[in-house]
Design a protein around this nucleic acid. Sequence first.
DNA 1: CGACCGATCGTCT
DNA 2: GACGATCGGTCGA
Length: 205
Amino acid sequence: MSVKLVKLKRSFYDRKDVVKIAKELLGKILVTQVDAVRTSGRIVETEAYAGVEDRASHAFGGRRTARSEHLYGEPGTVYMYICYGMHHLFNVITNKKDVPHGVLIRALEPIEGVEHMLNRTGKPVADFTITKGPGNLSCALGVNKFHSGGNVFSNEIFIADDGLRYKKNDIVITKRIGVDGAREDADLPYRFIIRGNPYVSAKKS
DNA sequence: CGACCGATCGTCT
DNA sequence: GACGATCGGTCGA
């Protein structure tokens, strides 16, 4: 590609407002180089998880276990959550170490390596489901629980800016998906999507 | 198109 | 022993 990618620095993640960071990650590019295969996609859907005060967070109330330990890591840490025993969900950690803020990447628009994504997912054709939803995109990019505890500053996994900027009207804000058990926090406006993008989850393609 | 259901397993109670 | 920050398929209207 002729477009220059600028890797986001630690200072991008080392900020207090995880909701704002989730919104700013829209349009950025998630790149992985796993098993000598490069795959990437533009982030079109994110969700913020706001730590100890957020009932939807694995760290709600200060809960800290072996599973959620990486949520408490340095800004830029990768936190992979295994959901339903088979899906690996990709999060990037924000704020200071020991403050368990994170952003869940929920959907990508593929850019590089679509044929490799097909190999990894076992899908026959590159329809919109290939990187729609957090489980699907992690599989397509080849990231799994073994990447948890790493960071997004390596050559293996990083997030970059190619200069694309969305207009305010291109961004839609909604409540989060699949967190109905979080009581009053289930309705918080912590989900950000690109308006009309076919890779956004929770709707038919 | 909406509702429902099974897969599948590590983690926490 | 129960339960997920999911997904894709099936069933019925």
